[in-house]
Design a protein around this nucleic acid. Structure first.
Lengths: 342, 342
DNA sequence: TTGAAAGCGCTAACAT
DNA sequence: ATGTTAGCGCTTTCAA
């Protein structure tokens, strides 16, 4: 047997022995319990420091039945929107003394279910979640609801699961984007929509359509394409549109990525941007500023949404009260060079 | 008092009672212990399922003195490189049954120290870490070393902390990039370097210089600028260079972001890319494909580095052996339109 | 203000 | 193959 493991983990018992007091006093002293004398506290803390004692959160969690861990389930970390959200979540959580366990679902419902199980096993104090695009059944959250563990959802949410919701108005986002193109003089506006099983993309499509109607522009079926929003889908869409006898003069892309790909592909096809075609994306990425022409977009505040989601969650945990509030985060129209006065 | 908290947390004792067997048998059955009869196992699992039992990882961790949690400390989640690394880390960890606790330092050493304390308190089984750009003292890792908790570092590493290292050859990256520009016919190549306190950027600067020397090009001091690599630094650099009587005809940017900003700023200044100026970045972002001209780059495999970092870590945890291996991940020269045959 | 003792839920010798 | 017992390190009544 290889000689490893030095059992030198310092516990409150070690401190207690050192000071010839009881472990409970040590525990109380370290937790700044009101009824422990200042002298004792000082002594205990001094020895703790000396010995290099560090609280064993596992034992503490078990004893208190509270882990101070927040579980985060998001589709994927790679997307800029989610990375920002995660960043916000992490910051707020930490500043409140919570640790963050993260899992990504890669848009797989199966994974999502598995992850809730893990989070349950880990006995997280609360859950921050952004659903996959295809989550239709929400029974995997029942466990938390039943146990009174708050679940905070952002962006892709389900109102049938209790808990705080942080969202943007996707209908408005699309409406505003479309209106912007209309005001610019676009007459034939196309939309590459996401799968309609997702409320987010459904809302966006609705906003798009309603804006056209409002401004009495025809809604031509060939201008409304629906897809999974992969890069290939975007390339296919622009090719289809540019082969039409009546080419669109404006495009509202349902996601940041598709907007980027559409713009890039259109340029390859020799389309003059923005003179012949205006483009705006629903969702902003840093990239949008760097491409030529720079891409107009509706900014969805990922960082802020993440922060709010945990804030509400932590409040729920602290209050022990059910919070079903819906927080609407403001979106922002970022006008850049890809949307042009015709 | 509001009536909350239904104490309905199912434990192995509940299962034991239900079946009139001992809790230890239940525990063993659930863990597929070899010496438990199949009948018992089946019964136990059935009841567990029925009752909606889910292992309490906290209790299990305390008892086993193993949390199955891997701590991750990275500078910031927002960067594409780290987001990818984190994604890889998370995937591999999960596939081995590990959970991941993440913390970001925002390049603050103080934060980094604080985070190691948190990770220690959480009793993580291992640590994956990418140092801040300014970490010069590494004593905050001593605690893990002493306890035999493996620490795996990637990208920005310290060889004075034991444990596996996953790195790229930054010297080579810069050398190859510079060589590429030289082969293209560039004669006056500039480099915007990062702070030399960071080994990564120091190596890159060295690679740049050595390539020039090797090809007998002069190393002019005004072509070698050093900075914190903020976007403003990049803008300043290009302005300075373009005001020189002898403007550079090639630029090696020390980071993906600075490359992007330099290219964009150069265009604004009316510089013809790549005819008058070739640009290549050390570090690739998705953006690079979308900008015009598309930006050549040396790709640093973030995803792969993250994956390897945990793989090695998990191996260390399992073997209980000190692993001081250094894994060099291959970089890749991505030639795009910003580097041009002069 | 402090101590004694029980317990959080699970695992792991050590019996049998 | 299964039960008994002790214990992981901490918190928290209850006593004193």
């Amino acid at each position: 047997m290889p000689p490893k493991e030095n059992k030198s983990e310092i516990t409150i018992n070690d401190i207690a022995k050192e000071l010839k007091i009881s472990p409970s006093t040590v525990s109380r002293a370290l937790n700044d319990n009101a009824k422990i004398s200042d002298v004792t506290k000082r002594k205990v803390k001094a020895v703790a420091q000396d010995l290099g004692y560090e609280l064993n959160l596992v034992a503490s969690s078990l004893s208190k039945n509270k882990t101070n861990i927040i579980g985060v389930i998001i589709p994927n970390i790679g997307s800029q929107f989610f990375a920002k959200a995660l960043s916000g979540i992490q910051e707020v959580a930490r500043s409140h003394g919570y640790n963050v366990i993260i899992c990504q679902t890669n848009e797989s419902v199966q994974q999502e279910i598995e992850m809730t199980r893990v989070m349950n096993s880990a006995r997280v104090d609360g859950l921050v979640c952004c659903l996959t695009m295809e989550t239709k059944d929400f029974s995997h959250f029942d466990v938390f609801v039943k146990k009174g563990i708050p679940v905070s959802m952002f962006d892709r949410v389900s109102y049938s699961v209790p808990g705080p919701k942080i969202v943007v108005d996707n209908y408005e986002a699309a409406y505003v984007a479309t209106e912007h193109l209309i005001n610019l003089g676009c007459k034939r506006i196309a939309h590459l929509a996401g799968v309609s099983t997702s409320k987010v993309f459904e809302d966006r499509a609705e906003g798009f359509k309603d804006a056209l109607t409002k401004y009495e522009l025809p809604l031509l079926s060939q201008y409304l394409l629906s897809s999974d929003l992969t890069e290939q889908d975007a390339r296919d869409a622009i090719r289809i549109w540019m082969n039409l006898p009546e080419k669109p003069d404006g495009i509202v892309a349902a996601s940041a990525t598709t907007g980027l790909v559409i713009a890039s592909a259109a340029k390859s096809l020799g389309v003059q941007l923005p003179e012949e075609l205006s483009i705006i994306s629903l969702g902003n990425e840093r990239c949008n500023e760097f491409v030529t022409p720079s891409l107009s977009a509706i900014d969805m505040p990922g960082y802020e949404m993440g922060k709010s989601a945990v804030k509400q969650l932590i409040k729920s945990i602290a209050d022990g009260e059910l919070d079903n509030s819906i927080t609407l985060k403001p979106i922002q129209l970022l006008i850049r060079n890809s949307s042009f006065k015709h």
